[in-house]
């Protein structure tokens, strides 16, 4: 399934990436601080809903998000 990698220590905690995710809240602000003293964004996708649409990465002013997409396999009808 698709996913994103966030370079946490480069994130400036601006939250813009959290405002565009079509799946709602796959990108959230973390509870902890990063090395720069910001609360970084983190990828939270337990159900694997991320489609790799890259909107969060597009919105990031600091290019800290890298996106990997796996083409969704056709659901095989049991």
């Amino acid at each position: 399934m698709s996913y994103i990698v966030i370079d946490e220590d480069r994130c400036k905690g601006c939250e813009l990436c959290t405002t565009v995710c079509p799946q709602g809240d796959l990108v959230q602000m973390a509870g902890h601080f990063n090395v720069k003293g910001y609360r970084p964004s983190v990828f939270v996708d337990p159900e694997g809903r991320c489609t790799g649409c890259t909107l969060c990465a597009m919105m990031c002013p600091d290019t800290v998000i890298t996106v990997y997409r796996t083409a969704r396999k056709k659901k095989t009808v049991e």
Binding site: A57, T66, R69, T70
Partner: peptide, 10 residues
């Protein structure tokens, strides 16, 4: 695993 296709990077 990093098997997905890289679709967005610097």
């Amino acid at each position: 695993s990093e098997d997905g296709e890289l679709v967005f990077r610097r």
